[in-house]
């Protein structure tokens, strides 16, 4: 093959694809084709090759093949979506911000606000009261959340969901339940304030 044939065959393919070529290139191609049997053969073979590719059709499939496949896809998606009502609620609230680059900062801000509120409440409450236990639980949950990498929407959604779950658990407990819990714990973990008072009195 002559060195220039490669270039002319590219031009033949370009013409077959309807790509624009310059007038000078078209004339040069015509002249080359008159003199080059190899490129003439290439030009002759090309339509048959492209037709051969186009004629390849999908196989005959059983009836209902695509309906079944669609049902399977939708079923799989529904399974993943129905995992949690909290996830759906958060998605409904923040879904519109997704993809605009502000979901993560917005949720980070919300997490920060919750942490701040939890800490402020904890400082204002008397130790060992049921309300204090609740706020301590909130604080513990919030601090745990803070240590998580909040770098994508899935993690954010999970973070808020987990936080809400912990809060709800403690909110559902009665004051007596919490007092019972703290009295059990106080046996294992003596209150340092009480110890100090004990040593002074002792």
């Amino acid at each position: 093959m002559k060195p220039s044939c490669e270039t002319f065959q590219d031009l033949i393919i370009a013409v077959s694809q309807g790509e624009p070529i310059e007038e000078g290139e078209r004339k040069a191609l015509e002249i080359h084709l008159r003199a080059c049997p190899e490129c003439r053969a290439f030009q002759r073979d090309l339509p048959g090759i492209l037709e051969g590719i186009k004629e390849d059709s999908p196989p005959s499939l059983p009836e209902g093949f695509f309906e079944e496949m669609k049902a399977s896809i939708l079923g799989e998606l529904a399974k993943r979506r129905s995992s949690s009502p909290w996830r759906r609620a958060v998605k409904a609230l923040f879904g519109r911000f997704e993809g605009r680059g502000i979901l993560v900062p917005a949720l980070s801000g919300l997490c920060g606000l919750l942490v701040g509120m939890a800490l402020a409440t904890a400082w204002m409450r008397t130790p060992s009261s049921p309300a204090s236990v609740r706020s301590s639980a909130n604080r513990l949950a919030a601090v745990s959340l803070e240590s998580l990498p909040v770098n994508d929407s899935t993690v954010c959604l999970g973070v808020v969901e987990d936080y809400m779950g912990v809060s709800e658990f403690f909110d559902a407990l009665s004051d007596q339940d919490i007092q019972a819990l703290t009295s059990d714990l106080s046996g294992d973990f003596p209150d340092p304030d009480q110890e100090e008072m004990g040593s002074e009195t002792g």
Binding site: F66, M69, R81, R88
Partner: peptide, 22 residues
């Protein structure tokens, strides 16, 4: 579909599943 509308997801699957399968 971005807002989680299942009907819209079904419409998009319907439109493209044959083409993508082929």
């Amino acid at each position: 579909a971005r807002r989680g509308d299942r009907g819209a997801v079904a419409c998009l699957v319907d439109r493209y599943e044959r083409e993508i399968f082929t």
